[in-house]
Design a protein around this nucleic acid. Structure first.
Length: 712
DNA sequence: TGTTATCAACTCTCACACGA
DNA sequence: TCGTGTGAGAGTTGATAACA
């Protein structure tokens, strides 16, 4: 496993390993001797220094580094690292594991907080000033400008950052005379408004650059010896201004501008504005203020946005989770609050389902001590292949009878203001092997009830899924009943009063039996991976559904940042009518697309990076994608598909393109038209950062575009 | 042998119609 | 107004078969 190493320059410069590091590793790996920890950290820091040197060597803009150790020859030709700069132990130059790191896992959120959390000494300070820089340069729509384009205007606006009270301090504006192609193309004149007469009277670039440096000095931003003073950075609308045009022109003209220590960490901002907005922004102070405020709000960190940090994400926005605290730290829902101390509620849905099955079997065996129980045959899939054991049509055979076990957790319905319980996906009426006995587990805070259902009470349809997934049993506790214990009692009483239903057993969720089942489920490899890697990661305590909704809100906000001039409308098609037995509006929660950006239907899907025991790899699985199904007229139900990968490192946002990982979803595809996208990491690669890099690489190679990343 | 495609089970959440 | 029923959105997990 790996420890993420992301050094700031000061840490590289330090001769000794920070004590904070030693303490953190000690917490994760208490058995490791201190000397071994120190040795490992020193070695890891040295590797990280070498990595930084590699990154610097790729950078078009040099970055001052106080101390860099010699890199091993093999590292120079390596592919760029993951955006985290993470380094696995087996990636060490010697190709061997570092001593004392055997039990270390990927960094937890606590590790990340130490490095980046609000208030941390390593958390980037918001800038005090921004110098908004937006060049104009020659361009022609008929042919490429040979040998290169030249800067024709060198304008800057100095902004003092203070949230909404940010102010423009001063402006610098100088026109520049092109020397390689002195005559401006008409296209360039029309585009920029800069006339031939203006540039003819202007100074060439080599004279403007010192004037610009002097302007920076006059505001105390640069010292006499040309070094940066204070906490500020140059900010450009895109990477093209400095990263492409200025570097290219200076290089061609063999000129040097000492960016060392001045604005070397320019904060490129990837496509934040439309072209017209960019133009307006360069022409007036409002644009500069707007950009300055937005960057301050986003805590844009030049270290993270350095183009060389990761080639894969060089043009993607990198955001801080603190920006989205209103989503990530929202107070728990009434359901979450009620189950705060319930051990069953901490299991995954699949684990809980298996525990419900085992509890049901236990109750059934107690009620029918002389009966013979066996597992139901798995049967065949649609395509004729054998089903898995857990895909069998029934859960049990009891004296030849088909027994189906279903479980549910009682939850608070905010819309109706009541507790209810729904058991879903019950296939009552199959051609072969109908259900003979239906055992329902009802999980309420601190308690599990097991009931034998009469196969008729409270049975309802399940929408379009009834055909493929079966019916549901739905019971509510009645409006106004807030106490979950009373609500559970009401639901139980309703089912039992139906006559034929039977109460089979009741357990406390802290009882020895339930605790044993929970313990056995927690021993699984995937559960262990989840517990270790996602401990304290934002949203990890949420249920999959509510986590997905949070991620969707995050993606919506990021999409808004990426398209600030677009009109975003949440819940496209929410007024459409659906239903066969009953017609009703879709509503925002089940709209046809998640949001509408101008006239583009945007669909967002998220997936947790999960450990797959069967294939021994990390994978992402985006399910339920309405991809070009006949029911949608043969076209997709969206125009723009955004994917969000939720991992212990953060949320990666991509725009899906091509068909990488696209596959069908069994009956979900044949009946409901759902597809899915599955992308796996390398087999037996346990390191999250390494696996994630491969997965992102596959998606990008397949045509997907990296849009943004939110770091936890 | 490793990777990809496929299948189907699991449960959770939100929203609303309709009739008594 | 309340109780009941309906609809459809969501992600997670684990296995097998096919393919390279």
């Amino acid at each position: 496993m790996a420890l993420v190493v992301d050094l700031c320059a000061e840490e590289e410069a330090a001769d000794e390993v920070p004590e904070e590091w030693v303490r953190r590793v000690g917490e994760i790996c208490p058995c490791a001797p201190r000397e071994a920890v120190l040795a490992s950290l020193r070695e890891t820091r040295d590797v990280a220094c070498a990595v930084n040197q590699l990154l610097d060597s790729l950078s078009p803009v040099p970055r001052k580094r106080p101390r860099v150790e010699t890199a091993s020859p093999g590292q120079r030709g390596q592919e760029p690292l993951a955006e985290t700069g993470a380094k696995t132990t087996h990636d060490s130059p010697a190709g061997k594991a570092l001593p004392g790191w055997g039990s270390l896992r990927a960094p937890t959120a606590r590790d990340m907080k130490i490095r980046r959390g609000p208030g941390s000494p390593l958390q980037p300070k918001p800038f005090e000033y921004l110098v908004v820089l937006d060049f104009e340069w020659t361009a022609d729509n008929r042919r490429p400008v040979k040998p290169i384009s030249e800067i024709t205007q060198f304008p800057s606006v100095l902004v003092r950052l203070a949230g909404h009270k940010s102010t423009v301090i001063d402006e610098f504006n100088a026109y520049v005379r092109p020397t390689l192609n002195p005559i401006l193309p008409q296209f360039s004149i029309d585009l920029t408004g800069i006339t031939q007469d203006t540039v003819d009277k202007a100074a060439p670039l080599e004279e403007v650059l010192p004037q610009y440096l002097e302007w920076l000095r006059s505001h105390g931003l640069v010292s006499e010896d040309g070094r940066r003073q204070g906490h500020w950075a140059i900010c450009t609308w895109t990477d093209a201004d400095i990263g492409a045009q200025l570097v290219r022109e200076l290089s061609f003209k063999d000129q040097r501008l000492n960016w060392h220590g001045i604005p070397c960490d320019h904060a490129g901002f990837h496509e934040p504005c439309s072209g017209s907005e960019r133009k307006r922004g360069s022409e007036n102070r409002v644009g500069a203020l707007m950009l300055g405020q937005r960057m301050q709000k986003l805590w844009i960190n030049p270290w993270w946005t350095r183009p060389t940090l990761a080639r894969q994400w060089r043009s993607a926005l990198t955001l801080n989770a603190a920006q989205f605290a209103h989503i990530l730290e929202a107070s728990p829902t009434p359901t979450e609050a009620a189950y705060m101390d319930d051990p069953l509620a901490k299991m995954t849905v699949a684990q809980r389902g298996r525990i419900f099955q085992r509890v049901s079997l236990h109750a059934l065996a107690a009620m029918r001590p002389k009966s013979k129980f066996s597992k139901a045959p798995a049967g065949l899939c649609l395509n004729g292949q054998r089903r898995n054991r857990h895909q069998s049509e029934h859960d049990l055979k009891c004296d030849g009878r088909n027994v189906e076990c279903k479980g549910t957790t009682m939850r608070w319905d905010t819309f109706s203001q009541r507790w209810d319980a729904m058991w879903l996906g019950i296939k009552f009426h199959q051609k072969v092997g109908s259900i003979d006995d239906l055992v329902l587990s009802l999980h309420s805070p601190g308690r599990v009830d097991v009931l034998l259902h009469d196969l008729t009470s409270y049975v309802s349809h399940h929408g379009v899924r009834t055909r493929s997934r079966g019916h549901s049993v739905c019971v509510n506790a009645g409006q106004g009943l807030v106490d979950p214990a009373q609500a559970c009692e009401n639901i139980r009483r309703k089912l039992l009063s139906a006559g034929a239903s039977l109460q089979m057993a009741t357990w406390d969720t802290h009882s020895a039996l339930v605790a044993e089942f929970i313990h056995e489920e927690s021993k699984s490899e995937a559960a262990e991976m989840f517990t270790i890697c996602y401990r304290d990661v934002p949203l990890s305590q949420k249920t999959p559904t509510s986590r997905a909704l949070c991620l969707q809100r995050l993606a919506f906000e990021v999409d808004h940042y990426l398209h600030p001039r677009s009109s975003l409308q949440y819940g496209f098609g929410k007024a459409d009518l659906v239903g066969v037995k009953v017609l009703m509006r879709r509503g925002p929660a089940r709209a046809r697309a998640d949001w509408l950006r101008d006239n583009v239907r945007v669909e967002f899907k998220s997936s947790k990076l999960s450990w797959n025991r069967a294939n021994s790899c990390w994978l992402v699985c985006f399910a339920g994608i309405k991809y070009a199904h006949a029911s949608e007229g043969g076209s997709a139900a969206y125009d723009d598909l955004l994917l969000g990968i939720y991992s212990p490192l953060g949320l990666h946002l991509l725009r899906y393109a091509g068909n990488v990982g696209l596959s069908t979803q069994g009956v979900g595809t044949t009946i409901e038209g759902y597809h899915r996208i599955v992308v796996q990491g390398p087999s037996r690669e346990e390191d999250i950062a390494a696996a994630l890099q491969v997965i992102l690489g596959k998606l990008k190679a397949g045509g997907c575009e990296a849009l943004a990343m939110i770091r936890w």
